[in-house]
Write a protein that binds this DNA or RNA. Sequence first.
DNA 1: ATCCAATTCATACTTTGATATGAGCATGCC
DNA 2: GGCATGCTCATATCAAAGTATGAATTGGAT
Lengths: 210, 210
Amino acid sequence: MPLPSDEKSIVHVVDDDASMRGALQDLFLSIGLETRTYATAQDFLDTPVPDSPGCLIIDIRLPDMNGLDFQAQLSRTGVRLPVVMMTGYGDIPMSVRAMKRGAVDFLPKPFKDQDMLDAVFAAIERGRQQRAVDGDVSKVRERFETLSAREKQVMVLVTDGKMNKQVAGDLGISEITAKIHRGAAMRKMGARTLADLVRIADVINPRRRP
Amino acid sequence: MPLPSDEKSIVHVVDDDASMRGALQDLFLSIGLETRTYATAQDFLDTPVPDSPGCLIIDIRLPDMNGLDFQAQLSRTGVRLPVVMMTGYGDIPMSVRAMKRGAVDFLPKPFKDQDMLDAVFAAIERGRQQRAVDGDVSKVRERFETLSAREKQVMVLVTDGKMNKQVAGDLGISEITAKIHRGAAMRKMGARTLADLVRIADVINPRRRP
DNA sequence: ATCCAATTCATACTTTGATATGAGCATGCC
DNA sequence: GGCATGCTCATATCAAAGTATGAATTGGAT
């Protein structure tokens, strides 16, 4: 298992302009950020992206795809990298649409190096936090999957506030059996107390309203 | 206590251009939305805003204040209305800054009526959801304030997963007394089960990470 | 065929939680 | 002074939770 704090961030640059790719690569390399460049959206989509923190710099105007469509497609394909948009010809509605879809920033060309660096830092930071949350949720879900079917059912009912007797009644089993499953679920989920188990359950299945 | 579903939304328009104020008022009134207009930021800030759902339409360029500064000041003064920005001369960085600060939309003038209506509907909807959440949190906090000092302490420790014995030890009281406070806290907070109390506690004091 | 995991249940014991009844003491308010 | 509220604790009782030991059944994997 990799150490999150040791993971190096990778900046992915998608721009059909070779000189821009080069300039950005130089800029990012100058501050020690690993950088990969792509000339087209398809080029990026065809390249396996390592599951490491980082961000994605996209030119709105790409040969094969609109930058906004590209942005929309990324979430569908499971790429979670924060996006920084840039463009030489964009207008306000375009920038607003990008921001609504979750872009971290939107830079008109030409931009100052420092503005791009600020955007990249912000994007990487947002990604780190998102990854941390996602990682926690995944771990809990994985643990939950190690529970047997019955244990899962019991855990759901218990974290819903039901007593062992009610759990047993709902599942058509004896109270003793319910206790056994309950204890097993607590152990497997690493919950020392019921309060822990409730919070774990809410990570897996968030409550909308209290 | 007002019924949230019966509350009428109010659209507040801040623009120094009287003809724009009139046009927007006509537009919103035509679909049955109560509308109030203001010529300056100060005008809005000086007018008491009823605590009702709605949104705020701001022209970036105001006589007395920049629209972005205005937006920033609103949160400081406790006004929670979702903001829709509009402008006749704005650029991309300005729109991006507004969106980063939480604006719902950013419309360049001239805009289509439908675009403005869409933005207003989206803003009102966002506000409704925010109000619903805020209202729930407030209610829980108010309830919590009806607890005595000891009951609060006990509730915190209990929802932290501690047993009555530990709670008593931590507070230097007997287990029996702890039980009494625990029961009182449950009753006053309307928690039927410990699971309920844990979730209520997390509304008051959200846990960062599971 | 055999082993294993899951599921079920019983008995028994200990700990914890929930609640009621009764009571002493301090503080602050009218 | 009188009174309410909050905090404290004891005794007692009952319900529920947690744990251990032992055992039977089932279904699937080896």
